[in-house]
Design a binder for these strands. Sequence first.
DNA 1: GCACTGTTTGACTGGTCAATCAATAAATCT
DNA 2: AGATTTATTGATTGACCAGTCAAACAGTGC
Lengths: 190, 190
Amino acid sequence: MTAQPERKAQLIDATIQELGATGSLSVTVGQIARRAGVSSALAFHYFGDKDRLFLAAMRHILAVYGAEVRAALKEADSPRARLDGTIRASFSETSFRHDVIAAWLNFYVLAHRSDEARRLLGVYHRRLHANLVHDLRPLAGPRAPEIARRLAALIDGLYLRFVHFPRDEAEDSASAHVLAALDAELKALP
Amino acid sequence: MTAQPERKAQLIDATIQELGATGSLSVTVGQIARRAGVSSALAFHYFGDKDRLFLAAMRHILAVYGAEVRAALKEADSPRARLDGTIRASFSETSFRHDVIAAWLNFYVLAHRSDEARRLLGVYHRRLHANLVHDLRPLAGPRAPEIARRLAALIDGLYLRFVHFPRDEAEDSASAHVLAALDAELKALP
DNA sequence: GCACTGTTTGACTGGTCAATCAATAAATCT
DNA sequence: AGATTTATTGATTGACCAGTCAAACAGTGC
């Protein structure tokens, strides 16, 4: 049937890759299209304008991430196991990748001028927060929301660091850091 | 004597303000110059090119931040008090401001393509890490570096959140979060 | 073979912007 | 006062880029 979904997916992949390669929203639609092996006019045909192409790429990243979280939660029974899953999903092979991280960074920049990007970012924030609070509640009671905020910020902060200094420094598994912080927070409860 | 320092400072301020207002590195030198009340040609005359103007703005932000940390450390005697100072300085009136945060965010983006920006970012990272480790050592021994990394990432992550959702939600003093995390980490030590 | 529909492109446009330059004004020096 | 350096700008250039458009192309049904 229609080649539309295929081409759209190609362009979205190319967008993420190009964002990772050049690291800035000032990548041109031409560059993206060239990477996808099509003309720039096709990108406009399918997405309307540049911002909507970026947004589509970001929605794709969020969808993949969301699926990964859901999968991790499905096979977790205890609250603690679910927290593990949520955290580990944030640093999974597919999400914690150079180009995806670069896309996230530029997503934050895009959120400055695009209402839709800001909305999407809010959705991610609330979803992560809700997940964390839900499973922290049995373990931390009324302190759950506060701890959740710290864990969420820690995750974002670790992403930020790995944009430029990729995962090589041995011990530094990012998820290990978040899990350690979680342990500390729980152990320190009154 | 020369009006150079004056104009340069004006342009640097305008750069930060404009970065905060539009939230993207694609601010034009013309916009910045107009905000500073001079012609764009003057900006080029003093800074050579756009990137060097951004870098100068970032160096200024780092200098202010560094001075603030040093001041906070001067009047702190115990390791714990010094940690408090380091953390609080990160969220001081002058550093934790909408436009400055936006400049930081774009600094991370700039670091993708500019070696000098990446170098500068490394300096900030190492300085913060060194400060934290130095004062964590007496309190956390060999776990100090690990904890320092988490606190640093938490600080960055909190910045990231406050780019778009400014400090209004009452309780949310960002530095309180970091201090709470620090307490938890110390309390949870073996 | 023809009409129809979706796909894809090359060529074009209008606008923007970094960077340059030649020229003027103001300060500084001798 | 004359010479020299510094500050400052308006005008311009050359490149680039988002977005448009009309036309070519391919498949599908009749």
